[in-house]
Design a protein around this nucleic acid. Sequence first.
DNA 1: GTCTATACGACGATAGAC
DNA 2: GTCTATCGTCGTATAGAC
Lengths: 190, 190
Amino acid sequence: MPQDPRSKLEDIALDLVTEVGPRGFTMAELSRRAGLSVAAPYRHFADRQELLEALALRIVGLQRQRYLDAMAAEPTPRGKLVAFAVETVRFAANDGQVFDPMLPLQLTPDTPAIVELRTDVTLELLAAASHFASDQNAQLDLLVRLSAATYGLASLYREGALPEEQRSVAIIEAQAVRLADAILQERAPL
Amino acid sequence: MPQDPRSKLEDIALDLVTEVGPRGFTMAELSRRAGLSVAAPYRHFADRQELLEALALRIVGLQRQRYLDAMAAEPTPRGKLVAFAVETVRFAANDGQVFDPMLPLQLTPDTPAIVELRTDVTLELLAAASHFASDQNAQLDLLVRLSAATYGLASLYREGALPEEQRSVAIIEAQAVRLADAILQERAPL
DNA sequence: GTCTATACGACGATAGAC
DNA sequence: GTCTATCGTCGTATAGAC
């Protein structure tokens, strides 16, 4: 199935933005990698900004689907929240192209379309969190801790900042599960 | 106390790199902000790279001191680890200039000098962790979870990715403490 | 849709006057 | 130490031929 040229350009742009970040992304380099002249991409995207926004939309849409599928496969609230944690580090471990561009949040200037994409996941998470915290404030607190913890794990993994012994997918997933469990089982401080 | 020109340039560069990241940092903009010609900074730094490395060294040195002081003020192992967590989010909340440039790890190309600066903190952390895990592998696992969780919290805070209700320093510090406690009190999964 | 050619600007870095 | 002037490179974007 031969892709339309716009999607093809997005594919290459995704690789590129993964390597150099949204800030380092240039139309010139994109053209080079696509084997086209510098003018060609402008037939498919009005300008650099439009291309980056298309990219952000694509990435967030993919994440949404992955999160929803992973959570739907788990029947229990605890399972859903753990699945969310594991899926996050899997993005980092197996899908750098999808994860890295999100790091510098530059790429996702919370447009309405993107906010809408995220809503579904947030609602699912809140529903699951309601089994671990009574009022809505406490549920939000819990989700923030869970998201932050797994996001941090995923980031350090991507940046190569973890000790060598921890750089396997299996280990990083296990760590994500332990983090999620610890957060869900929190007790009063010592 | 009138600073030497090199330090003065580093101050301004630190602000700049905080705003635009190491990749977006330019000597031209630095010169502009310093009220100098584009040539002037080259009297104090051989090239752009040298300036960025000097910046990285300064930042890491400052972090080291802050971590060591914060941990020294706490007598118990739990207190030291919690202090580490809190200090991390404080960097994010109060000292964006010190924290943000570390995000894209570009700025710290693990030179020997930087590795050495980090060693002290790591040793302190390992000593404290030894009260919560028996063998050294488990201690490292624990520290990775703790670092990742607080780093994630700090990152989301800096990026403005937290819900509005969570954007105060007090709340974010409380969240860091809860994360640390949860990790230190981990039990078997449900 | 793709090309070549071009206008224009920003940056890194250096040369040479003061 | 700082300036002005300059070179070379690279980027965005457009115009017009094919």
